[in-house]
């Protein structure tokens, strides 16, 4: 065998271990909790170092229905997509998702302008209905997120959830809330390893422990810049394992939202007969994007289609065989 294939790299540092969800004894109410990170090697290279936890999948659930869904999503999630609580329960119980990622799109001034109380009671209702931890995302509009998310953080205090996303220009309000309420935070950077590192420093400078930060490196779907995301993640992770604590955070990759934006996942068979069955195609687009992200080092994937989740769960089980 060639020398370079035989050579193994041993590293000095591990990725921080992030805990998701708190049980009753720990001050929360989750009966399912997760640990992610803490690996001492690049993805799935078990001979090079310990990889204690498998990547997990969070089901993307929206507080308001999306009228613009492609056919396959619209059909396959038809029964539940108007009721986020049923939707979350179905994904966590039947579709095999490890946890639920609630996107509060409806608080956006242009998409419903719901208030803090609405968002808070939805989060509470979800926590009652599912056993898993939650990831809770704002709508992406800074001012509204700063108004709503701290409230949601407060009413879910002690559950050790994962809130996001904060960015370099707007991180203080939500970070402070998450520190106070015992939650974790997602730090988002625009496919830029320098900004990812900088944001982690800023967040930890105001008191957030390094093991309560997840990096959202921002990804593109298959065909839409996936390889850029891959190379950024690879670079960050290899720096982390070599000793850079400020990049040694687990990754969360928003696969569903990116994959289902791709033309290839959306266009119907009637419009593009050569591309074949639209339903299968969309599912595969999401699954392929997800599996590439696993190889890049993702610790949490957020995904949308139950069938794609099943495929990726099976792939994870296979990849985790030592």
């Amino acid at each position: 065998m060639a020398e370079e294939l035989r050579s193994q790299q041993m590293y000095g540092l591990r990725v921080h271990e992030l805990k998701l969800g708190a049980t009753r004894e720990e001050g929360g109410s989750r009966s399912k909790v997760f640990k992610i990170g803490n690996q001492a090697a690049m993805p799935f290279l078990f001979k090079e170092g310990e990889i204690p936890y498998a990547p997990i999948i969070a089901a993307e659930v929206y507080d308001v229905p999306d009228d613009d869904w492609p056919q396959s999503l619209a059909e396959d999630l038809k029964g539940v997509s108007k009721n986020p609580v049923d939707w979350a329960a179905m994904m966590a119980e039947d579709a095999g998702a490890d946890l639920v990622c609630l996107k509060l799109q409806g608080i956006h001034p242009d998409f419903g302008d719901k208030n803090s109380k609405d968002a808070g009671s939805l989060a509470t209702a979800l926590l009652k209905r599912v056993k898993t931890p939650l990831i809770i995302l704002g709508c992406g509009q800074g001012d509204k997120d700063n108004e709503v998310l701290p409230y949601v953080s407060e009413v879910t205090k002690g559950e050790r959830l994962l809130f996001g996303c904060v960015v370099q220009e707007n991180y203080k309000t939500l970070t402070a809330a998450c520190i106070a309420d015992g939650h974790n935070i997602i730090a988002e950077s625009p496919i830029d390893v320098n900004i990812a590192k900088q944001l982690n420093i800023l967040i930890s400078d105001i008191g957030m422990p390094q093991d309560r930060i997840a990096i959202n490196p921002t990804i593109g779907a298959l065909g839409y810049g996936l390889e850029y995301a891959y190379s950024i993640m690879e670079r960050a992770r290899s720096a982390a394992l070599s000793g850079d604590k400020m990049l040694a955070m687990p990754f969360i990759c928003f696969v569903g939202q990116e994959a289902w934006r791709a033309k290839e996942a959306r266009v119907s068979e009637a419009e593009s007969p050569l591309w074949g069955n639209a339903r299968e195609r969309g599912v595969m687009w999401e699954a392929m994007t997800a599996i590439a992200m696993l190889q890049a080092g993702a610790d949490i994937l957020t995904m949308r289609h139950p069938k794609a989740i099943k495929i990726v769960k099976a792939a994870i089980a296979e990849l985790m065989k030592r």
């Binding site: 320098n194 590192k197 900088q198 420093i201 800023l202 960050a236 720096a239 604590k245 400020m246 990049l247």
Partner: peptide, 17 residues
């Protein structure tokens, strides 16, 4: 050898702690 960020000096020191 170490990844740049705007606070690169304090990042380096913090990472060594």
């Amino acid at each position: 050898k170490s990844i740049y960020c705007d606070n690169f000096v304090s990042a380096y020191k913090k990472s060594k702690k």
